[in-house]
């Protein structure tokens, strides 16, 4: 599997990272180098091997479904680049 310029554009979009058009070739080259390294995994026979989902054999703990925290609006908004009237503010989304 090899990444061309168009795939690089798509990957950058998926990652929501702006990449200038004239940088896409270079990016594709870099990504191909890393993916080439990963191709070694194809040498491994993984038939019947379960994919690991948890490194320690444990069940995720459950907790009571109750409110344990809250009333932290000011703290939540404290670091926002733009907060107004108790909300995060962003550029207009709906025309």
């Amino acid at each position: 599997m090899s990444i061309d310029k168009e795939t690089a554009r798509r990957v950058a979009h998926l990652a929501r990272i702006e990449v200038a058009d004239d940088q896409l070739e270079h990016l594709a080259g870099e990504l191909n180098g890393i993916l080439g390294f990963m191709e070694q995994l194809n040498e491994v026979d993984v038939d019947g091997v379960e994919p690991m989902t948890s490194v320690t054999p444990m069940r995720l703990p459950r907790r009571a479904d109750v409110v344990t925290d809250g009333d932290q609006q000011a703290a939540v908004l404290k670091n926002a680049p733009d907060a107004r009237e108790g909300f995060f503010a962003v550029p207009k989304v709906v025309e």
Partner: peptide, 20 residues
């Protein structure tokens, strides 16, 4: 990329199996 549709099994799931 390795999580995207079409490549998830070839890369991500494969790597999880190798991790096992």
């Amino acid at each position: 990329y390795v999580l995207s549709a079409g490549f998830y099994d070839a890369y991500y799931r494969k790597a999880q199996r190798v991790r096992t």
